[in-house]
Computed example of a mutant assay.
Amino acid sequence: MAKARDTRNNDAPNGPRHVAIIMDGNGRWAQARGRPRLFGHHAGARRVREIVTACPDLGVKYLTIFAFSTENWKRTQTEVAGLMSLFRRYIMKEMQEFVKENVRVRFIGDRPRLDAKLRALMDEAEAMTSHCTGTNLTIALNYGGRDEVSRATKRLAADVASGRLKPDDVDEETLPKYLDTYVLPDPDLVIRTSGEARISNFLLWQSAYAEYEFIDTLWPDFTKDVFTELLKGYGARDRRFGAVTA
C-alpha cells in the first residue's frame, strides 16, 4: 500500500504550522473575580476569536482547540448544560464571521452523545466554511484521545474483518487514516494554559513529536502577545525527530 505522507511539518523551521491548545483556566479565572464558572467560559469563548484572527499574521495555518472533553460530562449538570448552550450560541454567532475571514471550521470528537440541535449546527458550520482556504480551525468537542483511538481501531478492525484491509497492511501509517484528524497534519506545538502540566487525553497519537508549552496564564488572559512569544520560542527549538544534528 502507498506510504502515508509525513505529517511532522519539519519543512516549517521558523514557526509551527499547526498549533493545538488545551484552553484551561476559565473557571478559576471567573472564581477569582467572584463570578460563576460559566462567566469564565463565556470570556474564554471570546478569546478564541482573537487567537483565530491572529493566526494568519503569525504563520499558523492550523489551529486545534480543546473545547469539551469526554471527561467533562463529570462536571455539574448546570455547568454542562451551560457549556452546551454556549457552544450552540457560539456557532450561530461566529460562523458568518468565520466565512468572511476565510476560516475553515471542522469538529472532531464523538458526536452521537451531543444533542441533535448542536450536531446540526456543527454540520452546518462545516458545510458553510468548506470552501474557505485560510486558517483551519478544528474544535475538539466531546473529544478524548483514547476514545478517538478506540473508535478508529473499531473501524480498522471492521475493514480487516470484511476483507477490505489485510492484517499485514496494518502499521503505524494505517491507523491515522481512521482518526478524526485524518485530513490534518500533526500538531507541531501543543500549548496548555493555567499552570497544569498534563495533556489530559488530548491528541495522544497525533502529538507524538509535538513540542509542548505549559504556561501559567489562564485562558481568558491568553492574548495575541502571549501567543506570539510562544511561537517565537518554538522557532528557537532544534527539532530532530530522533536524528542527530551534524
Rank of each mutant, 00 (worst) to 15 (best):
R5S: 12
D6A: 08
N10M: 13
G15P: 03
H18E: 13
G25E: 00
W29F: 11
A30Y: 00
G34V: 01
G34K: 03
R37T: 02
A45Q: 04
V48D: 07
R49Q: 12
D57F: 07
K61R: 15
K61C: 09
K61N: 12
L63G: 09
I65G: 14
F66W: 15
A67Y: 07
A67K: 07
R75Q: 03
Q77A: 14
A81K: 12
G82E: 07
M84E: 02
S85D: 14
R88Q: 13
R89T: 06
K93N: 14
E97V: 14
V99L: 01
E101W: 04
R106E: 13
G109W: 04
D110R: 12
R113K: 12
A116P: 00
M122H: 04
T129L: 01
C132R: 04
N136H: 13
L141W: 02
E148Q: 04
R151M: 05
A152L: 03
K154E: 15
D159R: 04
V160E: 07
P167C: 03
D171I: 01
T174V: 09
T174Q: 02
V183W: 10
L184W: 08
I191S: 07
G195N: 03
E196L: 00
I199H: 03
N201A: 06
N201S: 08
Q206E: 14
Y212V: 06
E213K: 13
I215C: 11
T217W: 02
L218N: 00
F222W: 00
K224T: 14
F227P: 03
E229W: 08
L230K: 09
D238A: 10
R240S: 01
F241V: 09
